[in-house]
Write a protein that binds this DNA or RNA. Structure first.
Length: 430
RNA sequence: GGGGGGUUGGCCGAGUGGUUGAAGGCAACGGUCUUGAAAACCGUAGUAGGGCAACCUACCGGGGGUUCGAAUCCCUCACCCCUCGCCA
C-alpha cells in the first residue's frame, strides 16, 4: 500500500508503476473515489458537529426546550443513518483499490513484461564436469531407495513427496545448517507456524490477488502460509516500536504450503514444486531509510549466496524486471542454482525489498528520533527451501557410482560423513 | 468442550450514559537549577483524516445495536487470564 497523499501528489509515477508492472488498476477511478469520499466526509462531519453540539445542550435545557432539542437530535440521527452506510461503502471501495496500488520500482529495475526479460547480473561457482552421464535427482533418489513417489502419491496426491533413509537426514542437515549459519550472521532464529489468519496475507501483500494459491482450513478461518514471510511480517502488526528496536532480522523456519493453482502440469516430477515444504526465510524490518534497507538487501542476498557457496553449488544472480517482480516490491533479485540434468539454472531464492509498502498494510510502525511515528521498511529472502534445494545438491554432488559427496559444510550435521548412499551404478573403466 | 474474569493513550491504571480525548502514575520531550549530571520544580505531549488558520471529525480489542447523547447499556466476534475436563 502506498500513502494516499503520495498517490494524490504523484499520480504520474503511480500510473507508470502500474503499467510497467502489468497491474490492473484504474487509477482515475481511485482518485475520483478519493475526491468523492473527502466531500462526503465533510458533509457527514458537519452533521456530526451539529449533532454533538445539540446533544450537549439537552442536559442544560429547560423542560420546555428539551423536547424540541431531542426531536432535533432525532432528526439529525435519522439523516446520519442514511449517509453513514454510503460513507462506509465508499471507504471500503477505496481501500480495495488502494490495496492494489503497486509500489514504485527502484530506478535500477529493468522494464520488462515477464521473467524472460529478467537480467542476469553474474554467475558464481564452477559448473560440475562429469566424466559420466549425470542422473537427475529423481533417478538418484529412486536408485538409493530414498524416495517412494508412487506410494506417497496414493497417500497425498500429486506434488507430494516422501524422503526415506539418508535423504531425510540430508534434508534436516540442510535446514539445520541454514539456521545455524544465519544465526551466526546475526539473524534471530524463529520457528513459526504456517497456520495464519487471512488478514496476515493482506499485510504481506499476497491478498488481494493470491487467494487461489492458499489452502484454507475448513470450518476455521485460518489458512496455510506459503512462507514464513507471512506470519513474521504480522508479528509486530499494529505495534508502535521504539526506533532502537530496529532493525529486526530473523531466520524463520516453518512449513510452507502452496496450492500451485495455475501451474498445472509444470514440474510435477520430483522435488522441484511440491504443495508442502520446509523453508528457512530471512526477514528484516529496518528504519524508514532506503540506504539502510538497501544495505540489508545486500546482507541477506550475500547470506543466501554464502549458503550456496558453502554447499558448493554453482548459481547465478538475476535481477527481476518490472513485470516479474510483484506489486509490492521496490527491488527484487532471484538466485538460481545450477541443475545439471536440465542444463539450466532454477530459482532457489528470491530476495525482495518492499519499502514501507508491506509495513503500511500491516501497521508496522516505530517512533523515530523526532518522536514521529513512521512505517518501517521490510525485506525478505529465502535462506534455504527444502526439498527444492536437494535437487541441485544431489545432482551437482553425485559421483560416478551414484553416491553423493557431502560438501564440507554439511558434514557436521551428518555425523561427519563425507558420502551418502551406496554404489548404485557401474563406474566407467579408466 | 464446560464455567468464571478481562481487553482503556508508549507502559501501568481510574472511569457515575451528558465539556472524558479520557483522572493519576511511569516513561518521553522542552525549560529552570547545576561546572556537568541526578534530584526537585514548571511546562509540552495520543493516532488518523479534513480545513492548507482558529478549528472540526473519528478512534477506549473488532463489528453491529439501543439513545437526543455511549469508554460507560445490549448483541456478536476475536484475543488474554483463571478453573474443571480431555489430550500430544
Amino acid at each position: 500500500m502506498l500513502d494516499l497523499k503520495f498517490i494524490r501528489e504523484n499520480p504520474g509515477a503511480v500510473q507508470h508503476a502500474t503499467e510497467v508492472k502489468g497491474v490492473k488498476l484504474d487509477l482515475g477511478e481511485l482518485l475520483r473515489l478519493d475526491r468523492e469520499l473527502v466531500a462526503l466526509k465533510q458533509r457527514v462531519e458537519a452533521m456530526q458537529t451539529e449533532r454533538n453540539a445539540n446533544a450537549k445542550l439537552v442536559p442544560k435545557a429547560t423542560p420546555e426546550d428539551r423536547p424540541h432539542l431531542i426531536q432535533k437530535g432525532k432528526d439529525l440521527a435519522e439523516e446520519l443513518r442514511g449517509l453513514e452506510p454510503q460513507l462506509r461503502a465508499h471507504e471500503d471501495q477505496l481501500r480495495q483499490l488502494l490495496l492494489r496500488v503497486p509500489n514504485i520500482p527502484h530506478p535500477s529495475v529493468p522494464v520488462g513484461k515477464d521473467d524472460t526479460e529478467n537480467v542476469e547480473l553474474r554467475r558464481e561457482g564452477q559448473l560440475p564436469q562429469f566424466s559420466f552421464p549425470p542422473l537427475d535427482h529423481v533417478e538418484l533418489l529412486e536408485r538409493q531407495g530414498w524416495a517412494d513417489p508412487e506410494r506417497v502419491a496414493r497417500v497425498s496426491g500429486s506434488r507430494s513427496y516422501l524422503l526415506k533413509g539418508d535423504a531425510v537426514l540430508l534434508e534436516m542437515a540442510v535446514l539445520m545448517f541454514a539456521m545455524d549459519f544465519l544465526r551466526g550472521r546475526g539473524l534471530t532464529p524463529l520457528s513459526t507456524t504456517a497456520l495464519v489468519r487471512p488478514e496476515t496475507f493482506v499485510g504481506s501483500g499476497h491478498f488481494p490477488g493470491g487467494e487461489d494459491q492458499v489452502y484454507k482450513i475448513e470450518g476455521d478461518e485460518l489458512m496455510l502460509a506459503g512462507t514464513a514471510e507471512v506470519p513474521v511480517n504480522s508479528l509486530y502488526a499494529g505495534e508502535q516500536l521504539q526506533g532502537e528496536q530496529l532493525p529486526l532480522a530473523f531466520a524463520a523456519i516453518s512449513a510452507a504450503f502452496r496450492s500451485e493453482a495455475g501451474s498445472a502440469g509444470r514440474d510435477v516430477r520430483g522435488l522441484i514444486r511440491v504443495h508442502e515444504f520446509r523453508k528457512v526465510e530471512q526477514y528484516v524490518m529496518t528504519h524508514a531509510d532506503e540506504a539502510e534497507a538497501l544495505r540489508w538487501f545486500g546482507v541477506i542476498l550475500e547470506n543466501a549466496e554464502a549458503l550456496l557457496r558453502a554447499l558448493e553449488l554453482p548459481y547465478r544472480v538475476v535481477q527481476n524486471c518490472t513485470g516479474d517482480m510483484g506489486a509490492g516490491k521496490v527491488l527484487m533479485y532471484d538466485i538460481e542454482t545450477w541443475v545439471p540434468s536440465e542444463n539450466l539454472y532454477r530459482e532457489t531464492h528470491s530476495c525482495s525489498y518492499l519499502g514501507d509498502w508491506q509495513a503500511r498494510r500491516t501497521g508496522l510502525r516505530y517512533r523515530d528520533e523526532a518522536g514521529k511515528l513512521v512505517y518501517a521498511h521490510t525485506l525478505n529472502n529465502t535462506g534455504i527451501a527444502a526439498p527444492r534445494i536437494l535437487v541441485p545438491l544431489l545432482e551437482n554432488h553425485q559421483q560416478a557410482d551414484g553416491t553423493i559427496r557431502v560438501p564440507q559444510a554439511l558434514r557436521p550435521y551428518l555425523g561427519g560423513r563425507d558420502v551418502l548412499g551406496v554404489p548404485v551404478r557401474e563406474t566407467a573403466e579408466a
